[in-house]
Design a protein around this nucleic acid. Structure first.
Lengths: 209, 209, 209, 209
DNA sequence: GATGAATGAGAATTCATTCAT
DNA sequence: AATGAATGAATTCTCATTCAT
């Protein structure tokens, strides 16, 4: 439609603005109550819009979750990619990844809660998007492990599928514990000790069993 | 109610029977659809009882989940305790624990699904019970790590809270991946490689960073 | 389930009862407000049941209309069939049909209204059922005309499809006018003059144009 | 508004144009989906205007239907009047009327659908307008019958109210059948046989019963 | 005049829970 | 104890209408 450019940008921005306001509100409400216990009305109230407005920006309630993974989470994961690329050694890359991961999740607790909750559901409406995110993360780990093996800093006798899960799980649980704890300790400070554990394990001897 | 030792009289047994039938049916339905998407009617149909009958054995829908953690899961975890006690060294104990954990969850997939789903929720109705289970598991790990440190097989420079999460998370994620995979590979075969990773980490050198 | 027979019959009857109560209530409400302007709540209130109860007997709002044509209307049309079979000559059959038709619709005004309204809609949810009713009626007319032609009381130079429509339309409109009139004149008294018109037309001469 | 004769100034024409575009679009959408299943947005999209624009030309959704009968249908009926006046004998007048009626409805199927649907509703928002149309049509028939009776071509022993309904109904149903048929046969070709039926009836003998 | 984003009342439908039998 | 019909609160979503731009 024949709008002046400045106008278009303006209305685009406004539109964008409301989209994000609703998305953030939804994430907050989901984080507080869980997806199924949250109502569209609560999200609308939190976002300061009418119930019907939600449906101008999202197809339905499920779609909000889908957009969360498709846009918001994706953005964060893109930053993970970047952080990894900035490391030189595999170790550095891993450390960058985990530091940023913990930092990003600490900085946006609502996102963290929703991410952790939904990725552990079955029958997920955002299945596809979650699978994509998961793959992206696992690919980052693959890259790091590969490089580590080339460098000689990572063992070659590893079952890669398992190793990646082992890492993902450890990181996830550290976040999960932080989310469920009352005391708001510093999550990021867990990054280096965690990396160290992933690299060296808990044992004293290198003898393979 | 279902664990009274002397409950051998007829009506008790029958009662017991129906209680378990409903509980198992519920777990199956929850595993297939998730807690909030499951209806009491579906559970009743699966259990072969009337809707109203459910309320003779459970206070409400939430209570079914609570009982799941309070009775069913607890039973399984008691077996974990036993398995740990049967090991001599810390390593053996850890291996026993993880082997049994993976085996128990592989043998009862529905239980596994519900357990994994619900422990990652917030606003959980079974919060208290889950916390108790979690504590029980972490205590087992504490015991193992303590012994390992005494034996000298486990490093002493560890932040215990983190180490336990690191272990729990790794185990959980291995299970989670199995649950989400289409191919029904053997979960138990992951036990030993996983233990090895937990002990030795992925790195080649023992030099602490 | 093991009920005594008397019991089953009783509960069946009660069930049946409520089904019919809701159906009649719905027809009344539809007749007063039209299908789309009627709400399920209004129907429930009229039937003296809770909103949710409707859904124990009908799949959804559309289904009420479908059942109306599938059961209620069908019953009436079966009586038409009977009335026709009781006539000897074609003329008598036609007269029986139209008399009963007008009588049945006069006796159940709500049914008449809903029938007339819905059969003239497009995109009808009860399309299939309406088609079936329509066919049943047209078949009755076919039978009558056939017999009349054999008897020699009905002209042989007729386009049957048109003739049937001509009859149906005339009958329908007589009913329609009665429905829209304020004065509650006797609809049945229109039957014989209408039959006479259908047979003889409005013209004075038999000369074909 | 759309019928001011001198409305040739630019803005008037443009206005006129948009009014008709919306009206035609609405009729199309109503014909496809029925009045209550059509949304204002659909009409706007079909007309190529914004939702809000509709309300510059019509008071509300109901008003579109009212205008349809008040303007569009009326125009067509005026042409019926004209056609009738061009006939000499009653028979010719009737034939002219029915020929044009079928032709006009065949030429504008959407109009035909909406007309047939809405005239058979109760609780019609366009009640008043439909009544006026109906009266206009019945008056035409009255005129024809009167003349026919004077000429001697129409029987004098007729209940006029009934005769008119009989005619209207027959015509309506012929149109209705055409509308619901898949095969697009020629509706106009039904005109003469229909007139013949109305005049002579289906019977072989003139003996009054 | 024209737009279309925003509104919010209102509708259909679901489902945990109760309770008369 | 067992049943399952009935309830009605609660939820999602739609859409006619308005109004600031």
């Amino acid at each position: 439609m024949p709008f002046k450019e400045g106008c278009t940008i303006y209305s685009q921005e406004k539109r964008n603005d409301k989209y994000h306001r609703i998305l953030e509100a939804a994430i907050k409400v989901f984080a507080e109550q869980g997806f199924y216990q949250s109502t569209v009305s609560q999200i609308a109230r939190e976002a300061g819009v009418a119930d019907g407005t939600i449906y101008l920006y999202f197809k339905n309630k499920d779609d909000i979750l889908i957009q969360f993974f498709q846009h918001k989470t994706k953005q964060v994961f893109e930053r993970f990619k970047e952080a990894v690329s900035k490391g030189d050694s595999a170790l550095e890359k891993l450390r960058n990844l985990i530091r940023l991961h913990l930092k990003a999740f600490q900085d946006d607790r609502n996102m963290a809660v929703v991410y952790q909750m939904e990725t552990h559901q079955i029958n997920r409406s955002a299945e596809e998007q979650i699978k994509a995110m998961s793959k992206m993360y696992l690919d980052l780990l693959s890259e790091i492990i590969d490089q580590g093996q080339e460098e000689g800093s990572v063992r070659k006798d590893l079952y890669l599928g398992l190793v990646k899960r082992f890492m993902v799980g450890a990181i996830d649980e550290v976040i999960n514990t932080w989310l469920h704890s009352k005391t708001g300790y510093d999550l990021v400070s867990m990054a280096d000790p965690l990396v160290e554990l992933l690299i060296n394990g808990v044992g004293t001897s290198r003898d393979k069993q």
